[in-house]
Lab assay of single mutants.
Amino acid sequence: ATNIVGKVKWYNSTKNAGFIEQDNGGKDVFVHKSAVDAAGLHSLEEGQDVIFDLEEKQGKAYAVNLRIK
Rank of each mutant, 00 (worst) to 15 (best):
V36Y: 02
G40I: 03
K27E: 10
K33W: 10
I68T: 09
R67A: 03
W10M: 05
I20L: 10
F19V: 12
R67I: 06
G40M: 07
T14Q: 13
F30N: 03
G25S: 07
K57M: 10
V64A: 06
K15Q: 10
Y62R: 08
A39R: 02
F30R: 06
D23C: 15
V50L: 11
G59S: 06
Q48H: 05
G26D: 09
K27H: 10
H32T: 10
D28F: 10
D37T: 14
N65I: 02
E46L: 12
F19H: 04
Y62F: 11
E56K: 11
V31M: 05
Q22P: 15
W10Q: 03
N12A: 07
K27Y: 09
L44N: 00
S13I: 12
H42N: 12
H32N: 10
I4D: 01
Q22M: 13
G47K: 05
T14P: 05
I68W: 06
D28R: 10
K33Y: 08
V29T: 04
D53R: 03
A61T: 14
S13H: 12
T2Y: 14
A38I: 08
E21K: 15
K69G: 11
D28M: 13
D49M: 15
E46S: 15
G26Y: 08
G6P: 00
E55P: 01
N65A: 04
G59D: 07
A61K: 14
E56H: 13
T14D: 11
K9A: 04
D28I: 11
V36E: 00
N16P: 03
A63D: 02
H42Y: 12
N12C: 12
V50T: 02
K57C: 12
D37V: 15
K57H: 11
E21S: 15
L44I: 07
D53A: 03
G59Y: 04
L54M: 11
A39M: 07
V31D: 00
N65L: 02
A38P: 02
A39Y: 03
T14M: 13
L44D: 00
N24V: 07
V50R: 00
G59H: 05
G25M: 07
K57S: 11
S13V: 13
D49V: 15
D49L: 15
A35N: 04
V29F: 05
G25H: 08
A1N: 13
Q48S: 08
D49E: 15
Q22H: 08
G18P: 01
G47M: 04
V64W: 07
Q48P: 01
Q58A: 13
A63P: 02
G59R: 05
E55R: 12
G59L: 04
K9H: 05
D23R: 15
K27V: 11
K57Q: 09
T2W: 12
N24W: 09
V50F: 03
V31I: 10
F19K: 07
N65E: 02
D49Y: 15
V36C: 03
L66W: 00
V5T: 15
T2R: 14
G6N: 01
V5W: 11
K33G: 11
V64Q: 04
F19Y: 12
N3L: 05
V5N: 13
Q58R: 13
D23W: 13
Q58E: 13
D23N: 14
R67W: 04
S43A: 11
Q58K: 12
G40Y: 05
L41W: 11
K9I: 06
F52V: 02
E45G: 08
D37I: 15
E45C: 14
Y62K: 07
K33Q: 10
N24Q: 09
W10T: 05
E56P: 03
L66G: 00
S34R: 11
G47R: 05
A38S: 08
G25P: 06
G6C: 02
Y11P: 00
Q58C: 14
T2N: 10
S34V: 08
K7N: 04
K7Y: 05
V50I: 13
L54R: 06
A1M: 13
S34M: 10
F30Y: 11
E46V: 15
N65C: 05
K15V: 11
I20M: 03
N12V: 06
F52N: 00
V31G: 01
D53L: 02
K69T: 12
K57E: 08
R67L: 04
G26V: 07
L41H: 06
A35M: 06
I68D: 04
K60S: 06
V8S: 00
G25N: 08
A63E: 01
S43W: 12
Q58G: 14
N12D: 12
E45K: 14
N3P: 04
K33V: 08
D37N: 13
G18N: 01
W10K: 04
Q22E: 04
L54F: 05
A61S: 13
K57N: 10
E56F: 15
Y11D: 01
G40V: 03
K7H: 09
Q48D: 09
K69Q: 12
G40H: 07
N24F: 09
A1V: 12
I4T: 04
T2E: 09
V36Q: 02
A61C: 13
V36M: 09
H42M: 12
G40P: 02
V8L: 04
E45P: 07
E46D: 09
D28S: 08
W10R: 05
K15E: 08
G6E: 01
I4L: 15
D23Q: 15
H32Y: 08
G59N: 08
L41G: 03
G18W: 10
F30I: 06
N12Y: 07
K9C: 05
S13A: 13
L66N: 00
G6Q: 01
E45M: 13
E55T: 09
G59C: 07
L54T: 05
T2P: 05
Q58P: 06
K27G: 11
F19W: 14
G6T: 01
K57I: 11
D23S: 15
V31L: 07
K57V: 11
V5K: 15
I51S: 04
S43C: 13
E45S: 12
D53P: 00
K60A: 07
K69A: 11
A39G: 05
H42Q: 12
A38R: 10
E56Q: 11
A61R: 14
K27C: 10
A1F: 12
G25I: 06
E21D: 05
H32E: 08
V29R: 02
V50Q: 00
D53E: 04
D53K: 02
V50K: 01
L54D: 00
N12H: 08
G40L: 06
A17T: 10
V8M: 03
A35D: 05
K33H: 08
A39S: 10
A17S: 14
G59T: 04
A63Y: 01
N16D: 07
D28W: 14
S34E: 08
L66D: 00
H32P: 07
E55C: 13
E46W: 12
D37R: 14
W10D: 02
A63F: 02
V64T: 10
Q22I: 13
K15W: 14
S13Q: 11
I20F: 04
A63M: 02
I51H: 04
I4E: 03
A17I: 15
F52E: 00
V64M: 06
N24D: 09
G18L: 05
S13N: 11
K15S: 09
D23M: 15
G18V: 03
D23F: 15
Y62C: 09
G18I: 04
V64I: 11
D49G: 14
D53T: 04
A17F: 15
A39C: 04
D49I: 15
Y62S: 08
A63K: 01
Y11V: 09
